[in-house]
Amino acid sequence: MFFKPTSQPPDVRRRRLPRVPHTRVFSWLCTFLVGLFLLSLVALFGWQSLPVWRDVGPAYVTGTLWFYRQHTFGTLPMIYGSVVVSVVALVLAVPVGVGAAICTAEILPPRLRLAVKIAVELLAGIPSVVYGLLGILFLRDWVYRLLSPWDPLSGDTLLTAGILVGVMILPTVLTLTDDALRGVPALQRQAARGLGLTCSETVCSVVLPQAWPGIVAAVLLALGRSLGEMIAVFLVVGRQDNQWPAHLLSPQPLMQSGQTLASKLGGSETNIAYGDPLHWAAILGLGLLLLFLVGTITAMSFRFLRQDRHA
């Protein structure tokens, strides 16, 4: 039995006595606290970064130079760095992740599927600092050797960071895509197979079209993760300020050191900045930008995910 029926009626009445529904109040209070935390997070970053919006204005997001001693704060190179790292990561992780998810959800027998899923969850559990360590000691050198025909300055490049983040978001893409594929009713598959379609045809023309919103949600969530990743990127990106490329679409920046929003925030400048209101505001402005970007992407991902569930 899952609960003991109370034997004596008076006992029941005595237990009913408290008029205040403690559990309900507690439940609402917890949720209120969580909501308050999220709100105050946004408010705090907004409030603390006010000076930079007031004093620097739009140049803060369009300027390409950052010299804090001269109070020149332009964040565009960092936004660019974040975007490049994320794009490289997605280009690597999405095809592999979706392919592997098709394998686990549609092809593998249950036991093997569980084994792969556990392996992938473990991959997701590896701390980002360990990824960073592996990046510093292996990936950096590999990338340096790979790029040697173009004579790079070091192995600390946007490409290195992108590859590393690609591996880090692979489990996110894989797990959520697997969920989305498994959410398509089995009857749909059976109907297609019953018509004589092969496994791949069933996946391509029945399963993928229906799992589409869930896969988009997975990719968006992975994008959010890669934009916000600090530790691993910090260790391999080179943290070179003011790397604004001459040609936006040339592959040259991939082979150079750079800076992302997150890696800038994690650097020692954050400690230095606290005494100087404008510098501090400029630093927290980066946080606000990051929060805004990731928040928008997460909310979009949520929309897609829910749409998937209700369809």
């Binding site: 059976q190 197979r193 019953g194 018509l195 004589g196």
Partner: peptide, 12 residues
């Protein structure tokens, strides 16, 4: 089996 299922249809 795929060719077989094309010749033996099923209705659920």
């Amino acid at each position: 089996p795929d060719a077989l299922r094309a010749r033996i249809g099923i209705l659920f």
